[in-house]
Structure formats: structure tokens, C-alpha cells
Nucleic acid binder design. Structure first.
Length: 224
DNA sequence: GAATAGATTGTCT
DNA sequence: GACAATCTATTCT
């Protein structure tokens, strides 16, 4: 048995007990398409605190979004849609808001993004980290680690594995019944440059990453 | 806690 | 054929 490290900040053991959290989710309505049909920086910030829900055959899994990044093609050189690049991979970003854009990262991980703004504008919001809310045991099983470890979902690839988001989620409607966002409380929000986009020159310096301050699931601790 | 190397494949030049 | 919006284990301090 490894000793349990001391807890800092918010975590699954804080706040409401799990049955109460489940009851909260029952009464809430998924966010409408209007929520997504706004500029990428607005949506990226607004997503902090919202609860991402995925209904899977194994059960419902959900987590509060605590870290996002805005990608604003075609001018943003860090975006996959930079320069208006339109391929089978980026196609969904050119469509209407409120759909999932999935892509493979470093050959072995998936990343989950939300298509935002209006049709013809290839903008997206990358979800980089969530705080588990429901389905902790399912996430733990999928990740192969204990449910109280932050590594359950403190990164884009990790949260996709925890929520079972992959190729099948590409183009999925977030205003449907399987994958959607619910309202949720957000703490103080911090900003920083985006992570690992150094190749994008001046665009890499823009503070287009948003995160909940003090949340232990934020993937990369911000530099001050 | 920080730094490093290795894994592994879809996508595009 | 090169590279990537990363993760993990390992090796430091």
C-alpha cells in the first residue's frame, strides 16, 4: 500500500457526496446550441465549471471542466484549421457549433474539442482537464489507476480515456442525448498561454488557456 | 518537484 | 517520411 498524499484544493471527496451530485444532474437540462455559437475565447472561459456528461453502455460518467484552450483558425497558426486547412480530419470544425472534434495525439491518445462560433468559422475549444463527478469507478477501471488519483483526468488524453471518448465521438452532437454539457459552478478563473504549441510562433504566446485556480486536476501548473 | 526518454499511429508534405 | 494541442516510467535533486 502506498501512502495517500495529502489532499490540496478541490477533489472528488470535497463538496456534495456522490448520490447528491447524481441528484443534481437529474434535474439539469443540457446546454443549448446557443451556448456554443459564440466566439471561441468566450466559450472557452464559459466552459470552466460546466459538467461534461457521457452516457456509455457501462454507465454515466461525468466531470467538471477545469481547463480549456481556445483555437481560432484560420488565422491562429496553432489551430489544425490554420490557413483554412480543410481535410477529412478538420471538416467538422467548418460546420455548425455544438459538435465534437476528436483527433489523435502523438499516435496514441485522443483529444476532445467542442466546435464553436458559427458555420464556416473553423474555431474549437480543447478540453484539457476535468474533475471527476460521476462514474469514478468506471473511470478508474478504464485508466487502470485508483479513483482518487488526479491522473484519472488531469490531461486531454487522460480524460478521453476516462470518459471513453475516441474515434466514435467524432462529429457527435453535444445537443443530443449521449454527450452533453450541464450547468455547474465555477471558481476563480486563471489564464495562461496554451500548452505545447511552441511551433505556432507569436500565436503560442496568446493567453488562450483558461483554468480554475487552485483546482488540483489542472494539467500543467501555471507559471506566475 | 523537475527533467528526460520512449512509446506509437493518424495525418499531411 | 516527418511530425504531433501527450502520457508514463524513470532518474535525478
Amino acid at each position: 500500500m502506498r501512502p495517500t498524499p495529502p489532499r490540496r484544493g478541490r477533489g472528488p471527496s470535497d463538496g456534495a457526496a456522490l448520490p447528491e451530485r447524481a441528484a443534481l444532474l437529474e434535474g439539469a437540462a443540457p446546454l443549448p446550441r446557443d451556448f456554443y455559437a459564440r466566439p471561441p475565447l468566450v466559450v472557452a472561459r464559459a466552459c470552466i465549471g460546466k459538467v461534461l456528461v457521457h452516457r456509455t453502455p457501462e454507465g454515466i460518467v461525468a466531470g467538471r471542466i477545469v481547463e480549456t484552450e481556445a483555437y481560432r483558425g484560420p488565422e491562429d497558426l496553432a489551430a489544425h484549421s490554420a490557413g483554412g486547412r480543410r481535410t477529412s480530419r478538420t471538416e467538422v470544425m467548418f460546420g455548425p457549433a455544438g459538435y465534437a472534434y476528436m483527433f489523435v495525439l502523438y499516435g496514441m491518445h485522443w483529444a476532445f474539442n467542442i466546435v464553436v462560433a458559427s458555420e464556416g468559422e473553423p474555431h474549437a475549444v480543447l478540453v484539457r482537464a476535468i474533475e471527476p463527478v460521476l462514474g469514478l469507478s468506471i473511470m478508474s477501471h478504464r485508466r487502470g489507476i485508483a479513483p482518487d488519483r488526479v491522473a484519472l483526468s488531469n490531461g486531454p488524453g487522460k480524460l478521453c480515456q476516462a470518459l471513453a471518448l475516441g474515434r466514435a465521438a467524432y462529429g457527435m452532437d453535444l445537443c443530443g442525448a449521449r454527450l452533453y454539457l450541464l450547468p455547474g459552478p465555477a471558481g476563480p478563473i486563471g489564464r495562461s498561454p496554451r500548452i505545447n504549441v511552441d511551433y505556432a510562433g507569436a500565436w503560442a504566446q496568446k493567453p488562450w488557456r483558461f483554468y480554475e485556480r487552485g483546482n488540483r486536476y489542472v494539467s500543467v501548473s501555471p507559471r506566475h
